[in-house]
């Protein structure tokens, strides 16, 4: 159960090695957090960081479980198993995602579909399984890592952008559907975040880092917000960009 300060006792991350998600978890764990479950596709790889994780997240017990976003049929069972192990899921973060190589995605049907399988399809099945559990338990907070890339899809990386647009629209609808159940959804739309996902890329304007995203998420959770942009001004920027006429939008030098 979350306590009166909104502190979760249990935190679960899908995409448990995500740099952004781990920054969020570090920000949210308190001495009253008892369990952190990191669901990741490479458990053995993650084991190598166990000591660091244990130290960073103490006194919470950290467990690593195997999770493949594309194996959507396994998600309901996985969520049930996690709940059996740790009890109520107080806070869940969906962070699995791939960026891919834009030039390849633009022309490779199979690669594009595979990216959708992770970012969108996997998100839908994972978040729905979590939502069902939230309904049963009468509470729960879900954080979905979307992206401004989905707000208006840029030609430079439209496949990724479209996958996030799908996830984002789904998460909004899920948040509405959960109204009155005690559960809630927070959609996080970061801009360019310096993580290994963006390694080697030139930072876009208003670039930020995982700790700033974490700070914004923490504030949004206690302020009961439903959607946030990180950094905040992106909200206003994109509300303008969203309404630009197509010919102008296409000519903007957006990478």
């Amino acid at each position: 159960m979350r306590n009166a300060m909104g502190e979760p006792q249990t935190i679960v991350v899908f995409g448990g090695t995500s740099e952004i998600a781990l920054a969020i978890v570090r920000r949210l764990v308190t001495p009253r957090t008892s369990q952190v479950v990191l669901a990741c596709r490479d458990v053995d790889g993650a084991e190598r960081y166990r000591e660091t994780l244990n130290a960073q997240l103490a006194p919470a017990a950290v467990s690593l479980v195997s999770y493949e976003a594309r194996s959507y049929a396994s998600h309901p069972e996985l969520v049930a198993e996690i709940a059996d192990r740790v009890g109520d899921l107080d806070l869940v973060i969906f962070a699995a995602g791939v960026l891919g190589r834009a030039e390849q995605l633009a022309v490779d049907p199979v690669a594009a579909a595979e990216l959708f399988e992770v970012n969108t399809v996997g998100g839908v099945s994972t978040c729905l399984a979590v939502a069902n559990r939230f309904r049963e338990q009468g509470h729960g907070q879900l954080v979905v890592l979307s992206s401004v890339a989905g707000e208006r899809v840029r030609r430079a990386n439209f496949v990724y952008g479209a996958s996030k647009a799908g996830l984002d629209a789904f998460a909004q609808g899920l948040g509405d559907a959960l109204e009155g159940t005690g559960a809630s959804v927070l959609i996080v739309r970061p801009g360019f975040v310096t993580t290994r996902m963006t390694e080697g890329m030139e930072p876009a304007p208003l670039a930020t880092d995982p700790d700033s995203v974490a700070e914004a998420v923490a504030a949004a959770l206690s302020g009961r917000k439903r959607t946030i942009w990180v950094p905040g001004p992106l909200r206003w920027l994109f509300s303008v960009l969203r309404h630009l006429p197509g010919p102008i939008w296409r000519r903007l030098p957006l990478k």
Binding site: M1, R2, N3, A4, M5, G6, G138, H139, G180, T181, G182
Partner: peptide, 17 residues
């Protein structure tokens, strides 16, 4: 009736029948 409840401190609510 399914309702949101809190205690007298009005801190986080949860939903019950």
């Amino acid at each position: 009736e399914r309702r949101s409840l809190s205690g007298w401190g009005r801190t986080p609510v949860s939903v019950a029948d």
